[in-house]
Amino acid sequence: MTNPVLFHVRDYRGATIEDLDIKPALSINPTTNINIALEIAFENEFTYLPVIHEENKRLLGVLNVGLLRDNPNKLNTSFLKPIVKNYMIWFNQKSREFYEKQDIKPVEPVRNRTIMKPRAKKYKVLTPWTPLEQLADFFNNGIYFAIITNDEGNFVYGVATPEDLTKYENSRPRL
């Protein structure tokens, strides 16, 4: 099964991810209460929130807020503890297993926190200077959010979504 092609534009005239004007990142932790995480996301109009380890600051995954928003009964009918780790998308199963074995104390979410790369085998670095053509290809490969970092991948600037790129395309005159 192939992924649908979302973006057909091949020439963004030198525009980069920085031109999308995405909001600064706000990360949460796996122990963050899910209701607090959703409140943060709704207040800032985020559809994805990066989830980082409380102690070593390693990127563990994302919380898909849109999925929870579209299915509100998922939280009300769940027997799971109402914390992010039970509802997030983990980048690596081994990281999840390792995290579950630790005794972690909750901390408050912080804007623009220094992070460490995830331990996943595949990690494509997307920076504010990445051309939009590369971002479009990234989304066309079936990935529906992009965590924008510095060149080393250890500082999160924000999260870009296909909606951000569509909004940019619609705001520009056609060639």
Rank of each mutant, 00 (worst) to 15 (best):
D21I: 06
I22C: 03
R13A: 11
I22P: 01
A15P: 00
T32F: 04
G14N: 09
I22S: 02
A25N: 06
E18N: 13
N29A: 06
S27A: 13
E18D: 12
F7M: 01
T32N: 12
L26A: 01
S27H: 12
I36F: 06
I22G: 04
Y12A: 13
T32L: 11
E18A: 15
A37R: 11
V9C: 12
S27T: 15
A15H: 02
A15Q: 02
P24F: 00
A15C: 00
S27I: 10
L26M: 08
E18W: 11
F7Q: 00
I34V: 10
R10F: 06
E18L: 12
E18S: 12
T31D: 08
D19C: 07
T32P: 03
I22E: 02
D11C: 10
V9N: 14
N35S: 05
G14C: 05
V9E: 15
N33V: 05
R10A: 07
A25Y: 02
D11T: 09
R13T: 12
I34H: 02
D21Q: 14
A25H: 04
T32S: 11
S27Y: 07
I17E: 15
E39S: 12
I28H: 08
A37P: 08
S27D: 10
I22N: 05
G14S: 06
D19Q: 13
P24E: 02
I28M: 03
P30S: 03
N29M: 09
P30Q: 01
L38Y: 07
A25C: 10
I36S: 09
I28W: 03
P30V: 01
Y12S: 14
R13M: 11
P30T: 01
I17S: 08
L26G: 00
A15S: 12
I36V: 12
P24H: 00
N33Y: 05
E18I: 07
S27C: 13
S27G: 08
G14Y: 10
R13S: 11
V9Y: 07
I22T: 06
T16Y: 04
I28F: 09
I34T: 07
R13C: 11
F7E: 01
D21W: 09
I36M: 10
A37W: 04
I28D: 02
N35A: 04
D11P: 03
H8M: 09
I28K: 05
S27W: 12
P24G: 00
I34R: 02
K23S: 12
L20G: 04
I17L: 15
L38P: 03
R10I: 10
N35D: 05
R10Q: 14
I28T: 09
D11W: 11
F7H: 01
K23Q: 13
N35G: 04
D21S: 09
I34W: 02
N29T: 12
R10H: 10
H8Y: 14
I36W: 07
N35W: 09
T16E: 07
L38N: 11
G14P: 05
P24D: 00
L38H: 05
L26Y: 02
D21F: 06
